[in-house]
Amino acid sequence: MTTRNIQDYVTVLIADQLFGIPVLEVHDVLRGLRLTKIPLAPAEVAGVLNLRGRIVTAIDVRERLGLPQRKDKENGMSIVVEHQGEPYSLMIDDVGEVLSLDLNELLPTPVTLNSCWKEVSGGVYRLENKLLVVMQIEQLLNFADNSTIAA
């Protein structure tokens, strides 16, 4: 085992499931920003917000993952990532610590997962008391192609 294979993840909590986002992809962590809704937009797009003069598209990750809506929408947090030069704010429940994990311990995504989870997941880590799903940002934001064409 070499130290080179260490990857740092920001852990986030969505519906009690722990996810990991590679730390270098995270630009910002936000709390409680005012959203402007976009009528007719795909359900996954919660709206847009103003982040220091930039317009950021907010993604409802729960919707994307087929999870039920949160009851207390006000207290959520967001993680800002960038994809193809555009900023996106991923709405999540909570942000946890940063973990350094060994890539060699990354396990493939179980094939029995729900299809949209399978798409997003880049593998699973077995932590001591929980499982951490690695979130692939690119896949997460890739819903536009499939969902809106259908709609």
């Binding site: 005012r34 007719l40 937009a41 003069g53 536009a144």
Partner: peptide, 27 residues
């Protein structure tokens, strides 16, 4: 006028979005 995010590009009723003086984003 700022361009809208690529995932919203196919919404033909919006030509862009912008930030108003009060800081809110508007389509």
């Amino acid at each position: 006028v700022k361009p809208i995010a690529p995932i919203l590009k196919n919404l033909s009723i919006f030509s862009g979005n912008t930030i108003l003086g009060d800081g809110s984003v508007i389509m």
